[in-house]
């Protein structure tokens, strides 16, 4: 302490400087967040002077290419439909989403849409929306609530069905086979809805048949790097893998590299089934490295706008709308590749 006492002024100035800097940083961060939340200032009328339909949409964030494609689809579809879109990015935080929904209510938008970050905790804010008479659409992810009247409809993928579709392809492909089929599975992030549901859909169908054996199963966190690392170890520990089921394309792409580095041929020695349908995976199918990709479609913008229009017109909408998704096998890949937007 005596050391600092000899220079009493410096520590204090330092502390002040540090505090100022921290405050400045916080403010600039807050400013960035605020800028993202601000709704685009639209005129509110279309070319004919009629009042435009206003759609407030709160996105989860921008964590992946899939999500970026999802955002773009919604923005483009709103433009094409002639709606005024008030878009807000929640940056993976529930409080941001709740704040955005409250703002939409104050702005008296016609319809509110959001892709919930988490499944619970929405009742209060959705009751406010209901009281204001604004219909709500959930996209991509569901919520967990006792009161099903809080939202009008939920549009998005059914992850269990995606897993089942992947399993169905495998069962069909092995219909005439007799020997044991050894399967390795690369799971998504442990505990995430897509990982749990895709695993369930796939395994419930496939493992009914004792010919199919799950020899290796580990999480690859939905990433290329982890997918590659885990597959590298799988290949050393299990010499007899016939099929790889990856919960998303990124892990499949990493696994392909691991398989090739081990001197094996993906598509021949090990056949790969994947989910998502990104451009790279279609290219890999064209190259013969992936057998089949079950699509998980982010391009739900047009379907969402359709529902928005119906809700505005007070028309009836189904409580659950499934997004349009396909199963693409190797032979269809070349034709589809140019249409891939993400």
């Amino acid at each position: 302490m005596s050391l600092t006492a000899t220079t009493p002024a410096r520590p204090r100035t330092r502390k002040t400087a540090a505090t100022l800097l921290a405050v400045a940083l916080c403010m600039s961060l807050a400013a960035c967040g605020g800028a993202g939340k601000k709704a685009p200032a639209g005129s509110g009328t279309d070319a004919n002077g009629a009042k435009k339909l206003v759609f407030g949409f709160s996105q989860v964030g921008s964590e992946s290419g899939w999500r970026a494609a999802n955002t773009k689809s919604i923005q483009d579809a709103a433009k094409a439909a002639g709606f005024e879109l008030k878009f807000s990015d929640a940056q993976q935080k529930q409080e941001n989403q709740i704040a955005a929904i409250r703002t939409f209510i104050q702005q008296k938008v016609d319809v509110i849409g959001f892709s919930p970050v988490v499944v619970t905790g929405w009742d209060t804010v959705l009751k406010e929306a209901k009281a204001a008479g604004i219909p709500v659409i959930l996209t991509d992810r569901a919520i967990d609530t006792q009161d099903k009247t809080l939202y009008k409809t939920f549009i998005g993928s059914d992850f269990v069905k995606e897993g089942t579709a992947a399993g169905q392809w495998l069962v069909d492909a092995e219909k005439s086979g007799t020997g044991t089929v050894n399967i390795a599975e690369l799971e998504g992030t442990t505990g995430s809805a897509p990982a749990i549901d895709r695993k369930k859909g796939f395994e419930d169908l496939v493992l009914k048949d004792p010919r199919f054996k799950l020899v290796a199963d580990q999480t690859g966190d939905f990433t290329r790097a982890k997918g590659k690392e885990v597959m590298t170890a799988f290949l050393k520990a299990h010499k007899d893998i016939n099929i790889l089921f990856a919960h998303n394309d990124d892990m499949a792409m990493g696994a392909i590299q691991a398989i090739e580095e081990a001197g094996l041929k993906p598509g021949k020695d090990i056949r790969i089934v994947s989910i998502d349908g990104v451009k790279d995976a279609f290219q890999a199918m064209v190259d013969g490295k992936i057998e089949v990709v079950v699509e998980c479609n982010p391009l739900i913008g047009p379907q969402v706008m359709d529902l928005v229009r119906k809700l505005k017109d007070k028309a009836e909408v189904p409580a659950r709308v499934e997004s349009k998704e396909g199963v693409f096998t190797k032979d269809k890949a070349a034709a589809e590749l140019p249409n891939r937007q993400y």
Binding site: E187, T190, G191, A216, D217, Q218, T219, E229, V230, A233, F234, K236, A237
Partner: peptide, 10 residues
């Protein structure tokens, strides 16, 4: 990965 610890207990 080699031992096959289940993902949820990793």
């Amino acid at each position: 990965y080699t031992v096959g610890v289940p993902p949820e207990s990793t």
